[in-house]
Design a protein around this nucleic acid. Structure first.
Length: 420
RNA sequence: GUGGAUGUAGUUCAAUGGUAGAGCCCUGGCUUGUGAUGCCAGUUGUUGGGGGUUCGAAUCCCCUCGUCCACCCCA
């Protein structure tokens, strides 16, 4: 008698999911679209660390942001270093750019794909470990760079065949003009305190621009007449803003102005943009980015203009049609003694080396092996028994129409390759 | 961090305090070396986990974990 022992199943961590074949297939579609599009804009891939010093994000993203204040996975390692799992990509990219001493190497166009970590409550389109495709363009100050980067982002979603997406743009001003605007906004908001939600009232002092994208309908109602950044831009910011729009128009990129776009991360200035969908519930932002001219300097480098964006791989994948994992082309069926089995293995390998994805049904009864071929949906079956083995041939069966004929392995290979 | 819904076989779902079941999947069979439909047979569960109430709990209560959705935040 054997006693059945049940072992407690180990589960993945909350909000951290496995990528199984069908899902990964979609991720790869997103990635390959990005690689194709980005390479046309001469952006080069970088692979950056997942672990970074905690301080990097405190300094760049801002201590007051939710990401840093409560969502980072951080810990002290055995050497007493403060380390965290990166919650986003831009800070690490800037750190690497500085560390490599590239500030005098002209323009740098980078992109990356990788996992980011934020300890949030999971929800549709929101995971604790998720993947971002990001792009960063260092060293270009003019609006042409903004237009190109936005165009690249737009081409990415376009290449994925996604419909019903909107590109929204805004300008956040700069350290020269934002304080003046901020004062006007605070003045306006103070007159509305009776009508605003408690969170908004709190934010009037802490971060007044965030009030603008409050989702409470009543707040939005009273914010309709709020002063907008884009009508309070300084001359430089305004000409940059106009230049961006001229660029987008010249490139025939459809966009709409959304003066409510603000940024949770502290380092953004001037151009801010998002590509949004109405098909993902509350998590409608599929790609977001903007200009961050002050970040390189604030991390200890020379003043360097820069612009970038990040796209959520899982969110984009949610918009893609369902896909099938990669299927094999041929099932190898072997009937007979060991010599036959070995011959079938050699044949399978010959096919693979010719670039034909092949699975071996593993011997056993004919029926069992044919069922495997059927389940795997391979369009062809190569059957080898003692007869075929003796004549150096295989039975090549077309599983779609049921026809079959004896052929040499080379002939069979041609038949399969011609099938497309 | 807050709120709502939810958790039963590999999977989709039944079972309204009284013996845990069905479809699909899977395995084998319906004579010899041929899959999809058909027929027959078979395997599968600490009912997420732990406590409590009860003669008796998948069912009621408490705790905990996961999932989904929303708030918040963001990609």
């Amino acid at each position: 008698m054997t006693k059945k022992i049940t072992v407690k199943k180990i589960q993945s961590i909350r909000g951290i999911h496995d990528g199984l074949p069908e899902t990964v297939c979609q991720w790869q579609q997103v990635e390959s679209a990005a690689r194709t599009v980005f390479s046309r804009y001469a952006f080069n891939e970088v692979r950056l660390p997942i672990l970074e010093p905690t301080h990097l994000f405190v300094r760049s993203i801002g201590e007051q942001t939710d990401i840093v204040a409560k969502e980072m996975y951080h810990f002290v390692d055995q050497g007493h270093d403060h380390i965290c799992l990166r919650p986003e990509g831009t800070a690490g990219a800037v750190r690497a750019y500085l560390q490599a001493g590239l500030t005098r190497s002209g323009l740098q166009r980078w992109f990356y794909v990788g996992a980011m970590f934020r300890r949030e409550r999971p929800q549709k389109g929101r995971l604790r470990q998720f993947q971002q495709i990001g792009a960063e363009f260092f060293g270009a100050a003019g609006p042409l760079a903004d237009a190109e980067v936005l165009a690249m982002a737009w081409q990415l979603v376009h290449r994925l065949g996604l419909q019903h997406l909107t590109l929204e743009i805004n300008s956040l001003g700069c350290p020269a003009c934002r304080p003046g605007y901020r004062e006007k906004l605070v003045l306006f908001l103070r007159q509305q305190t009776a009508n605003l939600c408690p969170t908004c009232i709190q934010r009037i002092d802490s971060n007044p621009m965030r009030v603008l994208d409050c989702k409470v309908p009543q707040c939005q109602q009273y914010l309709q007449d709020a002063p907008e950044v884009i009508s309070h831009l300084c001359d430089d910011c305004n000409s940059h803003w106009q230049g961006l729009q001229a660029g987008l128009t010249a490139l025939s990129i459809p966009y709409c102005i959304n003066p409510r776009i603000v940024r949770g991360l502290d380092y953004y200035n001037r151009t801010a943009f998002e590509i949004v969908t109405d098909q993902l519930g509350a998590q409608g932002t599929v790609l977001a980015g903007g200009r961050y001219d002050g970040l390189v300097e604030s991390l200890g480098g020379p003043a360097t203009p820069a612009i970038g964006f990040a796209a959520g791989v899982e969110r984009l994948a949610l918009l893609l049609p369902e896909t099938m994992a990669e299927k094999a082309k041929v099932t190898m069926v072997a009937m007979g003694n060991e010599a036959v089995i070995l011959a079938s293995m050699r044949h399978a390998d010959t096919l693979r080396q010719a670039g034909i994805a092949t699975i071996h049904a593993g011997g056993g009864t004919m029926k069992r092996q044919m069922k495997i071929a059927d389940r795997e949906q391979t369009p062809f079956c190569l059957i080898i028994g003692e007869d075929e083995c003796a004549t150096g041939q295989v039975m090549c069966k077309n599983m779609r129409n049921g026809s079959q004929q004896q052929q040499t392995i080379t002939q069979a290979m041609n038949t399969i390759l011609q099938d497309g």
